[in-house]
Amino acid sequence: IGNVTPFYTPAKQVWLPAARGKGLEISGTFTRRNGQIYMEMTFSNKAMQAMTSFAIQFNKNSFGLSPAQSLQVQGPLQPNGSVDSSLPINTKGPVQKMEPLTNLQVAIKNNVDVFYFSCLVPLHVLCMEDGMMDKRVFLATWKDIPAQNEVQYTIENVNYTADQVSSKLQNNNIFTIAKRNVEGQDMLYQSLKLTNGIWVLAELKIQPGNINLILSLKSRAMEVASGVHQTFELILHN
């Protein structure tokens, strides 16, 4: 009780410092509500003139992220003023693999100039609500994916029980399909599905009295593994 949190939304970070935005500062984060990805931003005007006519564009990116509507910034944004904007995002845009995979390059225009910045999209906002793999399919897929396509990570310093871990992850669309206990050790079998249709299978070993968990990942597209590992870290440490 008290340990279960809803979808994890990272705190906003400064994406465009005022010094690079001719007085415009943008901080932001990403979240997911009701199956929809949102880019949440705060625009702050640190210049001496009002700002108007805001617009946004994304560069091609790994997951085809694209604004689902035009950017709404209540304006004009007066000097020393600050305003929040929530931009729905779809995944119908052009795809080009980025390094790192979740890198997103953004252009923002206003009446002053055009500004560019990059940000990282936390992978769990791309995890779909229907990512719970059928048990039979999970078993077959786990067997089918060769051992060389498995990567292991240690997630250190996790002070949750297996059930708490499971429910924290489930709130972020990482689903537990089966839980087994072998000689006191809890084993969680989990799945997630990314917006581009890539499935990832996970096994999480939780040993009694050990705050370090062992995460094993299997996927037919292993380039997502490192991002998925980071997502587990993020969720289990927040």
Partner: peptide, 20 residues
């Protein structure tokens, strides 16, 4: 019963991963 088979399969998977 297919569900029982599936439950067994997960138990066997967990066993095999503990004692490879």
């Amino acid at each position: 019963d297919g569900d029982v088979d599936l439950d067994d399969s997960f138990s066997r998977l967990a066993e095999s991963r503990t004692h490879p």
